[in-house]
Design a protein around this nucleic acid. Structure first.
Lengths: 110, 110
DNA sequence: TCATTATATCTATAAAATAGAACAAATAAG
DNA sequence: CTTATTTGTTCTATTTTATAGATATAATGA
């Protein structure tokens, strides 16, 4: 068994994949990270991270057919596995559990 | 300006510091991580991370006096700065915002 | 004095994050 | 046709984080 928690950027990418459902692929994730968090993400970073997540079994990928728009070439679509989903939920639960013990961070302060 | 978000382990250490208030120091953080998360953390990892966090201005440290128990030597006590606290809150808010957009992770599912 | 305990610090390595260049394949424009 | 433009992936190199464990230090107890 590999470790069952995610790096900071790994988790962010996973969240985008979850959010984008069947539309998740490298460039789109990149854009979505920027629009959701305001933080720039390079395409290289995203693809490298997806490859790591796939190796760990948290996502699976497959190539789509080209779309018929200008430049619309094949995409590597990304989908979360059950293992990935469960890891994401565990990571949320772990964080909430910790926050709960810190008055300044408890969720009723939001 | 350095980047304003935390690595995965950095965030965990920060949460422990917040949780332990004036009692936070290397070994204790190490133990607390294990007891809170069940995940082993080496003392080397914790100290290296604290040093990084201090360099970034998220915590500050100072040496205590020895306590009068067997082996009770000086500790490097760790305290969060305002900058660290605000970073932690921002990181919580960012995560909650993302979860909210993902039905399986929304907080009412807890 | 010697053993034991509680701690920090150092050293080395592996893994994650990052940026950007290089490459590929599609359509549009001339 | 041929070339430019667009959407995308893959590759390469580097920095930053994470990790483990060995080594060093200072205190008390025997």
């Amino acid at each position: 068994m590999g470790k069952e928690y995610l790096g900071e950027f790994e988790e962010l990418v996973m969240l985008m994949v979850a959010m984008m459902k069947d539309e998740a692929y490298g460039l789109a994730i990149c854009d979505e990270i920027e629009s959701q968090t305001g933080r720039p993400a390079s395409i290289g970073a995203v693809h490298a991270t997806v490859a790591r997540l796939e190796k760990k079994g948290f996502v699976e990928t497959f190539m789509s057919d080209p779309t018929n728009e200008r430049g619309g070439r094949r995409k590597r679509l990304i989908r979360m596995t059950n293992s990935g989903k469960s890891t994401l939920i565990k990571s949320r639960d772990a964080k909430v559990k910790l926050w709960t013990q810190i008055p300044d961070l408890a969720l009723n302060k939001i």
